[in-house]
Design a protein around this nucleic acid. Structure first.
Length: 672
RNA sequence: GCCACUGUGGCUUAGCGGUAUAGCACCUCAUUGGUAAUGAGGAGGUCGCGUGUUCAAUUCACGCCAGUGGCUCCA
């Protein structure tokens, strides 16, 4: 007599089944096809799992987030199967699902692009075979035996499993892998995948351990999703600020000048200058004082601040005076001796500044300060230099020299909350004006296990509390992340994504009790006693380079009128209109517009096509009709056009659009 | 810094052991054209840099520089 079990589905219906019937069968009867796995008593399991007791059951749809994640994990196994078949010496290590796909790390000889194609082909072959993916349970002893030839898997087994514990493997064809599952039922579920790239990784992300070959792939539930992702990546490539920066002549990076060093072209400099003017207006309103400080400072300054001892590897090496250098050379001083003497302060030198705060702090300390002077807000577009690893440098977003829209606010403890809020409001005004609403707020805290921070615990706690409180008062979601603090204090960061989904920290506000302590800053309070101020560091753009890089992608090179490197391109119909074009150009320049004239003898279609590439806010076309009536014909970037607009009218509207920093272009009504 | 890949006139690109394609851009001439390419002609390159192999290197090898995708790092 076969016993009968009750299976309760999420919709509340109860199915009576015989013991040993698989979860998949019950689900298929109840919901039809479309599941990739099941949830049995709140545990994700394979569809093939036999039901032995009464239970609750739900399906994981192939098209759901959880379903696709399982698919991606199974696809990682498929990759490992293909790799081990083609390269019998390759040792699989780990292979998880990630956003959009999966990767798998192998201990093997490095692969090239050709190899990737061959692996992909082999994977497709296994997909066609439609191999069953089957779960097997084994004791740790058996598992240790099965994976004896793979030291990585052995390490996992001995680390994660107690003696006598059982765990599972998944088998497809001749291939099997240690894995908890669940997995898709068979390889034919995995057909919508594509291998994307290879890279080096380290076993357990530890660079002192074995170097591994990582293979990345993407995988989706259906063909449309895969195609959509491919299309998105192609479109993203078109918005890439490195490509647009070249096409639109916004910046140049020169081999001869150096890696990660941005040369701003005239057109790019316009964008930067407009942004700086914009922020300058807000600084004046908020009571900031503008300062200028040099690009270098003595090593001792940075020993005091902590920059030199704590972050030596990410700075350019110190500059040493010529006479001292000559003397050291005469004394046969070795490089390591020199480094030691610098580290210990036996000789001094200068550092390219990695941050602006020490200079600003010395400005604060240059005079006796009273509580009446606070808050003292010192602002500077200060250029700083950091030795980023060569492989990490990229376009404008990761560079070695960059200009921060920096400021340091010297405040009393009572003023922290209000001043932090003022900083955050500034960031929000800027992001709002530019239509950047897709950002997240991150409160960066200490990593409790790291010793890279300066200062006392007590001060950190106060500062972290201040940041939390400020973030909470924002009214937007924020997350706290350990290990994301600056070395002198916690911070509130505004993080945006670029077109490829990579995150960049832009605006930042940091509360710092430590540097005032290290520099022994003081002010006289209302009580006549000496008190220590708190420093708030803030940079709403972060760096001009990174911000403009992200902005190029945000606008796809189509800057709003106030930011556009050239705002109006004037195009003549024929030679007869040169004179009128010159007149219009000079009047537009009188109101401060950035204008270019094309009175060449190319055809009108040709000229429009050419100028479109440079993305002016508007093109103005001038012919007989316009010259005779003092009007203009205007064309926007979308190709909408309007004719017979009186020149005065156009100028007034253009001025207004620029002055209000309108993110939209409104001078041409949209066409049907 | 590490791994893989890439580097040909301003841009996109063909080619490959015998100093090199084509398109766009540029210049000249003709054309005076109303909203996404008028026609003809011309000029422009020590094929990233260096060393080696070879009778001969842009092509092969090695080293360096720079870029791309990742890894690691990121005050």
């Amino acid at each position: 007599m076969v016993s009968t079990l009750e299976v309760t589905l999420v919709d509340g219906t109860i199915h009576e089944i015989a013991a040993g019937v698989s979860a998949g069968e019950v689900i298929r009867d109840a919901y039809g096809r479309g599941a990739v796995a099941a949830i049995l008593n709140d545990q994700p399991v394979d569809l093939s799992t036999p039901i032995e007791e009464s239970c609750t059951l739900d399906q994981i749809l192939l098209e759901s987030d959880e379903g696709v994640e399982i698919l991606r994990h199974s696809c990682a196994h498929l990759l490992a199967q293909a790799v081990t078949e083609l390269y019998p010496d390759a040792k699989p290590t780990i292979g998880p699902a990630i956003e959009h796909g999966f990767y798998y790390d192998f201990h093997m000889e490095p692969l090239g692009e050709e190899d990737l194609k061959a692996i992909e082909k082999k994977m497709q072959y296994f997909v066609k075979q439609n191999l069953k993916i089957e779960r097997e349970e084994h004791t740790s002893a058996t598992l240790a035996e099965m994976f004896a030839d793979n030291s990585f898997k052995s390490e996992i087994i001995s680390d994660k499993l107690e003696d006598g514990d059982a765990s599972t493997i998944y088998r497809q064809g001749d291939f099997f892998d240690l894995c908890r599952g669940p997995h898709a039922p068979s390889t034919s579920y995995l057909r919508n995948f594509k291998l994307t790239s290879t890279s080096q990784a380290f076993w357990r992300a530890d660079s002192s351990r074995e170097s591994l070959v990582r293979i990345y792939g993407m995988c989706y539930a259906n063909k449309q999703d895969l195609k959509a992702r491919e299309t998105l990546l192609r479109e993203a490539a078109l918005r890439d600020h490195r490509k647009l920066g070249k096409d639109l002549q916004l910046f140049h990076i020169d081999e001869m000048v150096g890696q990660g060093l941005i040369l701003w072209t005239p057109r790019g400099s316009v964008v930067r200058q407009e942004l700086q003017n914009f922020i300058g207006e807000h600084l004046r309103r908020q009571g900031y004082s503008q300062v200028f400080t040099p690009h270098i400072g003595k090593l001792d300054l940075y020993r005091t601040s902590g920059h030199f001892p704590y972050y030596q590897e990410s700075q350019y090496p110190p500059l040493v005076e010529r006479d001292l250098m000559a003397k050291l050379a005469d004394d046969d001083c070795s490089c390591s001796e020199l480094a030691n003497m610098m580290g210990e302060g036996d000789i001094d030198g200068y550092l390219l500044k990695p941050m602006n705060c020490p200079h600003h702090i010395r400005l604060f300390a240059s005079q006796p300060r009273s509580y009446r002077d606070l808050p003292l807000r010192l602002a500077e577009f200060g250029t700083v230099y950091r030795w980023e690893q060569s492989g990490e440098i990229s376009g404008m977003t990761r560079v070695r020299g960059f200009t921060q829209d920096d400021a340091h606010l010297f405040v009393t403890e009572d003023q922290i909350a209000e001043e932090v809020l003022g900083c955050i409001e500034l960031v929000q005004v800027i992001f709002g004006t530019l239509g950047m609403d897709d950002y997240r707020v991150r409160v960066g805290l200490r990593d409790p296990d790291s010793d890279k921070y300066v200062g006392e615990s007590e001060q950190w706690e106060k500062a972290e509390a201040a940041c939390r409180q400020a973030a909470a008062s924002l009214g937007v979601d924020f997350i706290e992340e350990e290990g994301e603090a600056a070395f002198y204090g916690p911070k509130i960061d505004f993080v945006v994504k670029d077109v490829l989904g990579r995150e960049w920290q832009l605006g930042t506000v940091q509360v710092d009790y430590n540097l005032p302590e290290r520099f022994e800053l003081e002010y006289t309070g209302g009580d006549g006693e000496k008190h220590r101020p708190v420093v708030i560091h803030r940079a709403p753009f972060g760096s001009m380079e990174r911000f403009v890089g992200v902005l190029i992608e945000h606008f796809a090179g189509k800057f709003p009128t106030w930011l556009a490197p050239t705002q109006v391109h004037i195009i003549t119909i024929s030679e007869k209109h040169k004179e009128y074009a010159a007149k219009v150009a000079s009047e537009l320049k009188m109101i401060g517009a950035r204008v270019e004239v094309d009175d060449s003898d190319n055809t009108i279609g040709k000229k429009i096509r050419t100028h479109r590439k440079m993305q002016p806010a508007y093109m103005v076309i001038l012919g007989d009709d316009e010259a005779d009536n003092d009007t203009v014909s205007i064309r926007n970037r979308k190709g909408d056009q309007v004719q017979g607009i009186p020149l005065d009218n156009f100028m007034a509207n253009l001025s207004a659009e620029i002055e209000t920093r309108n993110a939209e272009q409104n001078l041409v009504p949209p066409q049907e």
